[in-house]
Amino acid sequence: MSLTATAANSNSRWSLFRREALRGLAALVMALLVAFLVVLFTSKEPFEAMFQLLVAPLQKQRTIGLWIDDVAKLTVTGLAFSLVFQARQFSMGVQGQVYMGALAATYVAMSPLGTTWAAIPLCMVAATLAGAVYGFIPGYAKAKLGANEIVSSLMLNYIAIDIVNYLIRAQLSPPGKGLLMTDPFPKTAVFPALIANTRIDLGLIIAILCILGAWFALYRTSWGLKLRLVGHNPKFAEYSGIRSTFIMVSAMTVAGGLGGLLGSMFINGQAFGKLTVLFEGGLAFEGILIAIVARSRPLAVPVVALFYGYLRQGAALMGIRTDVPAEVIGVVQAVIILLVASSFTLPGKKLIARLTRPAGEPPVAGKAQETQP
């Protein structure tokens, strides 16, 4: 590749990044303005409420830990959905994979292996394998039986949640101590904290490794190239000799492995250290929003997760410290998703370009017409 082509490619990437960043920033500002209008009509102290929304997650070490912990988990679930979306599949099964992964990690942690030095890696491996198997099922069902992956994966979510909740109540919860959680795991089966007295633990490093692994798999391996070709043009991929069904099933299986690993991050992390009923609180499903806004790009997923996690924690703290219900964040999230995920452009862009164009310079359309034969 020539230096000119390399420079042009670099400029194109920078232009794309700048355009996406400006569009995302504009969408965020507009969404916060909408949030302020909502708060204005629902709070007696709207400025205090907005202050809590925007500043509260950074006020204490504990709240920063809550934010970073959310970011790590949102990143992994966003990556899981991104892999599936790259193949132009719409599996919604990450939530069920999280539960099955957590269940597998629980059995390891509560076994004699849970008291050994190998507890954490074995919990992670068991969770990843359980999630991968649970991700393989809807992929295989679509490839061999023609089942709709959206319906099958959603139903598998309900099955996984009910199985885990039943096993907690029937087998795993200690007698006489309620039916909502297991005994705490041994310390050897709990992720070590990276910063004392916070939820920032080994899960953050796992999330970073998942980002690098997903990026490498998608853009530096033949499997990733085939996956993106199948996503962009499945017919062309078939004509090229690529087995589309194998690629689709493998993408859903790998995504399932990430979902299962996320289950281990939940229950082996500092936040829990045990398995509880409905432990993930719907966070795993929010990876859909992360993947959509990030356009399924692995390196964009953590950036989106940083902002989304911050708003998520800010809204929760705003709901605790002020008279505004935390549900107001739903308005902010919806506006951000609608503006960033759609073909959003700044209003008045053409007018601004016309006003700032030097005198005597023809418009872009005119230039294009002059160059046509």
Rank of each mutant, 00 (worst) to 15 (best):
P347N: 05
N157S: 02
G263H: 02
F285G: 04
Y140D: 05
L53M: 13
L261N: 02
V125R: 05
L225S: 08
K349H: 14
A291N: 01
A118M: 13
M92E: 06
S250C: 12
Y308L: 08
N233T: 08
R220Q: 14
G319E: 06
N233V: 07
A118H: 13
G330Y: 06
L3V: 04
L122A: 11
S82N: 05
M100K: 09
L338W: 07
Q61G: 10
G281M: 08
F285P: 01
Y166A: 07
V230A: 12
G176Y: 00
T77W: 03
G146L: 11
Y166N: 06
G224S: 08
G348F: 08
R169S: 14
D183H: 11
T221L: 01
T116W: 06
E286P: 05
L355R: 15
A305M: 09
A147T: 14
Q95G: 14
T253F: 01
P234E: 09
L262V: 04
V301H: 01
K73L: 14
L204Q: 05
M124T: 08
M248R: 14
L351I: 09
V39L: 01
R220D: 08
I205S: 08
G203K: 01
A118G: 06
Y239D: 09
P192F: 14
C123S: 13
F85S: 04
A80M: 09
Y140W: 13
L225V: 11
N233S: 12
D201K: 01
A102C: 04
R18D: 04
W215P: 04
Q59N: 10
K142H: 13
T106M: 00
L229Q: 15
A316G: 12
Y308G: 00
P358F: 03
L179R: 14
P298K: 08
N233Q: 13
S43P: 03
T322A: 04
V335E: 05
I168Y: 01
I120P: 01
E361I: 11
S250Q: 08
F41T: 15
A316S: 15
W67A: 04
L209Y: 09
G314T: 04
V98F: 04
F185I: 00
G203P: 00
K274W: 01
A143L: 08
L311K: 04
L209N: 07
E327C: 10
V98G: 03
E48Y: 15
A26W: 11
L32C: 11
P186L: 00
A147P: 02
I137G: 02
F285S: 09
A214K: 03
Q52G: 05
L278G: 11
G78Y: 01
I290K: 04
V190S: 00
P57N: 02
D323P: 05
A251P: 04
T345H: 10
V94A: 15
L306I: 14
